[in-house]
């Protein structure tokens, strides 16, 4: 039985806006599935339907074997949810929030205290547990949010853009925890607009654009669909034409990019050495060279005709200082 099964799921809003236009997907038990897409693609609407926060307009979905429309209570008992923009009460302390979450899930008080303390330690907030959440940094809030989502030991965990706006260190801490949870058997469904996040974490990736599934597969499968690795060469002035002539013998020449000559490598990285030898024999000076593997952004470009937002900027948000 798949952990998540979605068939022709649709959601329309007032004014006829179709946020999700009939998507199909399946997530196996114990898998990390990344739902990748730009802002407004339909990622959050899909998560809200799968977590019973929003009723679908059409189609069907089951989570942990329960129908999201007909058995919402069972779904809620089985899942953990950490929503976009960690929805935490800034006036509560981390420990109070953990206890409240445990009570909401019907955990007896003694267990709630024990589990809450263990989770606070697990997400690295022991020293800040009795401080109000309003004093936490963005990374600390996300870690607390993740911790509260785990208090009832869910079988399926939904993370809606868990690292958006976090600095690289905080992002790394969340990734590590997600991997750890997954290794313990938790199925993880995460939405992201970061290519690197999907690439690093996911067993499989679904690309959504404009409410439709554009592609689905493992990161390797998806990249293989869009072509071969390419070599980018920075050359001495006046040698571009000669260089392109030489490169033509090794692979398909691609349009130059910012003065850099690009060639697709038919045989992958193994094709680099003969190219360097040929260029050397032709007396062409190479200042710099890069082997570029196809990225999920290339996949996104291939499937949707445009780049994913932020892909060219390496998706690094401004670092967020941790409060003292």
């Amino acid at each position: 039985m798949p952990a998540i099964e979605v068939r022709q799921l649709e959601r329309s809003f007032a004014g006829g806006v179709k946020a999700v236009q009939g998507i199909d997907l399946e997530v196996a038990e114990g898998e990390i599935y990344a739902f990748l897409g730009p802002n407004g693609a339909g990622k959050t609407t899909t998560v809200r339907m799968l977590t019973t926060l929003l009723k679908p307009t059409a189609g069907a979905a089951t989570v942990a074997g329960f129908d999201v429309v007909k058995q919402p209570g069972d779904v809620r008992r089985a899942i953990g949810v950490a929503l976009q923009e960690a929805a935490l009460d800034p006036l509560m302390t981390g420990r109070e929030l953990m206890q409240l979450q445990a009570t909401l899930h019907g955990i007896p008080k003694a267990d709630a205290v024990r589990r809450g303390d263990a989770l606070i330690e697990r997400v690295g907030l022991t020293n800040a547990a009795d401080r109000r959440v309003g004093t936490y940094s963005g990374g600390m809030r996300r870690r607390l949010d993740l911790g509260t989502a785990l208090v009832h030991e869910p079988t399926v965990l939904f993370l809606d853009e868990p690292t958006t706006g976090l600095d690289p260190a905080s992002r790394g801490a969340i990734w590590e925890e997600v991997r750890k949870l997954n290794s313990e058997g938790t199925t993880v469904f995460l939405t992201t607009q970061y290519l690197e996040e999907a690439d690093q974490l996911a067993d499989r990736v679904g690309i959504i654009d404009d409410g439709l599934m554009a592609a689905e597969g493992t990161p390797r499968q998806l990249k293989a669909q869009v072509g071969k690795p390419r070599l980018e060469l920075s050359l001495a002035e006046g040698t571009h034409d000669a260089c392109e002539k030489v490169l033509g013998r090794f692979g398909e020449p691609l349009p130059p990019k910012d003065g850099v000559v690009v060639v697709a490598l038919e045989e992958g990285a193994a094709g680099i050495a003969p190219i360097i030898r040929a260029l050397d024999e032709a007396g062409i000076v190479v200042h710099d060279l890069h082997l570029v593997e196809p990225s999920l952004d290339d996949v996104f470009l291939e499937k949707t005709g445009r780049h994913l937002e932020g892909a060219d900027t390496d998706e690094q948000p401004a670092p967020e200082p941790e409060p003292a």
Binding site: T51, T52, L83, A87
Partner: peptide, 16 residues
């Protein structure tokens, strides 16, 4: 305020 901040979603997503 709970609705605006999203805290209400936390409550709605719980089995209560």
């Amino acid at each position: 305020l709970d609705i605006e901040s999203g805290f209400m979603d936390r409550l709605i997503a719980a089995p209560i």
